[in-house]
């Protein structure tokens, strides 16, 4: 692995990433106060929170591939924070739907979750995120041991669900969901490739060669 000189002092990485992750929220609130959310603000808030959930999810999943490809260690150090911010925006997205869009109309909400595949799968993705957020602490990591890693494999399922949620809700223009899907596929391929490499490297050497 080649390593590069860090761009910033490592001790600033966490606070910087933390603030960066809050920017979409800050800009969103600012937009709300300055009439930048358009004619249908509830729809706009739904889209923004959904967009940032997916983006942060993909960024979280990029940590390992970035280390593999470029030897960067810092993304792994902020990976937990990125994952929790993914969960944070997912909560805002769900709350926007429950409160602003449906205003607690539980009957309609339940019907949506059962009957509308894009909502079913989006809600499923959220439900699966909850145990990952709950078990993100050091104490939980220690307690779960090997099973922690297995549990957190769920993130791949969640990512696929999230992108299907996006793909199934658009009317005709599939460009953006497909770009997200392509990024996810690339990240998964990089992982798979390195996993295969390390598997074959770890195997005992063939007896004749």
């Amino acid at each position: 692995m080649h390593s590069m000189k860090p761009f910033v002092n490592p001790k600033f990485v966490k606070p910087l990433v933390f603030m960066a992750c809050l920017l979409p929220l800050v800009f969103g609130i600012q937009a709300g106060f300055t009439d930048q959310l358009g004619a249908n603000p509830i729809e706009e808030i739904t889209h923004r929170t959904g967009d940032w959930t997916l983006r942060l999810l993909l960024i979280t999943l990029a940590a390992t591939p970035l280390r593999r490809l470029f030897g960067w260690g810092w993304p792994l150090r902020v990976r937990r924070m990125l994952g929790l911010f993914t969960f944070f925006y997912a909560c805002l997205h769900l709350l926007t739907y429950l409160v602003l869009d449906q205003f607690f109309d539980w009957e309609d909400i339940l019907k949506d979750i059962i009957k509308r595949p894009y909502i079913t799968i989006g809600f499923g993705a959220f439900v699966l995120l909850v145990p990952l957020a709950v078990t993100s602490t050091n104490a939980m990591m220690r307690r779960l041991g090997k099973r922690w890693g297995q549990l957190h494999q769920l993130i791949y399922v969640i990512a696929v669900f999230g992108i299907l949620h996006y793909l199934w809700l658009v009317k005709a223009d599939y460009l953006l969901p497909l770009i997200h899907a392509a990024i996810l596929l690339t990240l998964l391929l990089v992982r798979a490739w390195y996993q295969r490499q390390s598997l074959s490297a770890g195997r005992p050497a063939p007896q004749t060669s």
Binding site: A39, L100, F103, D108, K111, D112, Y118, W168
Partner: peptide, 16 residues
């Protein structure tokens, strides 16, 4: 097929 047509949001209003 993908969403309900039972209610609508009038632009400028909060409640459907």
């Amino acid at each position: 097929p993908r969403w309900s047509q039972g209610r609508e949001r009038r632009i400028g209003e909060f409640f459907k």
